[in-house]
Simulated scan of single mutants.
Amino acid sequence: MGRYIVSRTPRAMKRMNKRLILATIREKQPISRADIAEITLLSRTTVSQLIDELLEEGVVKETGTGVSPTQGGRRPVLLSIVEDAAFVCGIDIGGSQITTVICNLSGRILCKEVIPTCSDLLSLFQWVEHFLGRAPIPTDRLIGFGVGTPGITRFEDGMVLSAPSLGWTDLPLKAEMERRFHLPVYVENDVNVAALGECWRGAGEGKQHVVMITIGTGIGCGLILNGELYRGCHWASGEFGFMVTDSQAIDHWNDPVVTGFGYLESRAGCPAILRQYQRRVRNPAITDAKVVFDRWRRGDEVAGQVIQEAKRHVAAGIINTVALVDPEVVILGGRLMNSRDLFLPQIVKSVKRLAPIQTEIRVSQLGADAGALGAGALVLREHDCPYQGVL
């Protein structure tokens, strides 16, 4: 049986303490050294030494003075994060579009561009170079890239093991991108980074146990457990689209809407809704699931039947996930939430009726920006630099 080995070297402890101090400043800013020591349980000497280093590194700044202590004495100097001390680039590669952002240490997006998805690396890298050339930041303050990709990604070496919608198998994206740009690159599943984005600046902010489900071309799930991203033994946690939500499918189903897709996303994702409707009305000329929702709004009974069936499958998956994980909140995002007035109320009602606990269901606050912002957050969480801890 394996066990975790925690490094206790002075260098490792110093790095951990710095990260703790930065996280405390981020959450409580402006805050004094004395209050940091009280909250973190570090000695005042340790806090003062590490704060001096962070000031010298330009990561934190003094922002005025607080109220004098009740026993008298000097007013404490207050500290805050220097939000523009560094920047990160977040790239969200979706099935139909790529969203690229530059954000600062507080998660404020400074620039953003969206292009149609390109799956060949040369075109992708040329686009990133073009984007960076137009970005309104000093390039020497860019500390790394975070990339969200659909499918299964091995985080430790940034290998995209399987991304059917892009035609990628065993693609060493991290290695190729670092070779091109000479900066650290962190590659993660696209829904995992969307979950990080929502926990940083969106519907999951302040939560420690979060389930993020996105429904678009495919259906994916990101899990934040005890404040940490859960990836699973084989880097495949959260493959929500592979849930089997009909017992009859166990023995006979073999009809993925896209090669490599699972059962649930072949019954409830946008391509699945479109395919079911095309089959029932025998009209392959309809090419967008949005048309199906529009027709339901106008009273089309077949469209209503197709969407109702998709809703039941999604609700079953959420109920099972809530029963298994016990999250504080379930966040729903993706293209299908553009029609949430037709899709969401019945799902909430079903989950409330059948789930063992009353978990709150929220819609993504960040929308299409969640993945790119979360990819930026990934850099700040993982990169071993003075800024680790601002997230």
Score class of each variant (00 low, 15 high):
206 G>S: 03
317 G>V: 06
264 L>G: 09
46 T>N: 10
124 L>P: 03
315 A>M: 07
244 V>N: 03
274 L>P: 01
101 V>C: 04
327 P>I: 09
88 V>A: 01
385 C>A: 15
248 Q>Y: 13
326 D>Y: 09
16 M>R: 13
2 G>S: 15
168 W>G: 00
389 G>T: 12
115 I>F: 05
199 C>H: 04
128 V>S: 04
257 V>K: 08
69 P>F: 12
47 V>D: 08
370 A>T: 04
361 I>T: 10
164 P>R: 07
183 L>Y: 12
21 I>W: 05
254 N>A: 10
187 V>A: 05
165 S>V: 12
207 K>R: 14
73 G>H: 13
97 Q>A: 13
103 C>S: 15
274 L>S: 00
300 D>M: 08
302 V>C: 11
116 P>F: 02
44 R>K: 14
155 F>K: 06
331 I>C: 01
366 L>W: 04
75 R>Y: 01
210 V>P: 04
359 T>S: 05
61 K>P: 05
228 E>T: 09
370 A>G: 08
54 L>D: 02
383 H>A: 13
136 P>K: 02
98 I>M: 05
385 C>M: 08
334 G>S: 09
309 E>F: 12
3 R>D: 14
341 D>H: 08
222 G>A: 11
368 A>M: 10
304 G>K: 03
178 E>V: 01
375 A>L: 00
167 G>R: 00
369 D>A: 06
261 F>C: 10
213 I>S: 05
88 V>N: 01
139 T>N: 13
351 V>D: 04
170 D>C: 07
85 A>C: 06
381 R>F: 05
12 A>M: 11
309 E>G: 13
200 W>Y: 11
65 T>K: 15
343 F>H: 02
178 E>W: 08
291 V>T: 02
74 R>V: 10
98 I>R: 06
142 L>N: 02
86 A>W: 00
367 G>L: 08
303 A>R: 05
54 L>T: 04
223 L>K: 02
371 G>S: 04
326 D>A: 09
362 R>I: 01
315 A>R: 07
298 R>W: 06
220 G>R: 00
198 E>M: 11
384 D>K: 14
5 I>Q: 14
348 V>S: 06
73 G>S: 07
3 R>G: 15
194 A>P: 05
305 Q>Y: 09
246 D>P: 11
41 L>C: 15
234 H>K: 14
87 F>E: 03
43 S>A: 11
332 L>F: 09
184 P>F: 11
315 A>L: 12
74 R>A: 15
43 S>H: 11
208 Q>H: 13
155 F>H: 13
89 C>H: 05
276 Q>H: 14
232 G>C: 07
224 I>E: 07
43 S>C: 11
381 R>H: 00
132 L>K: 03
154 R>A: 03
7 S>E: 14
254 N>Q: 13
239 E>I: 08
237 S>H: 04
386 P>R: 04
105 L>P: 02
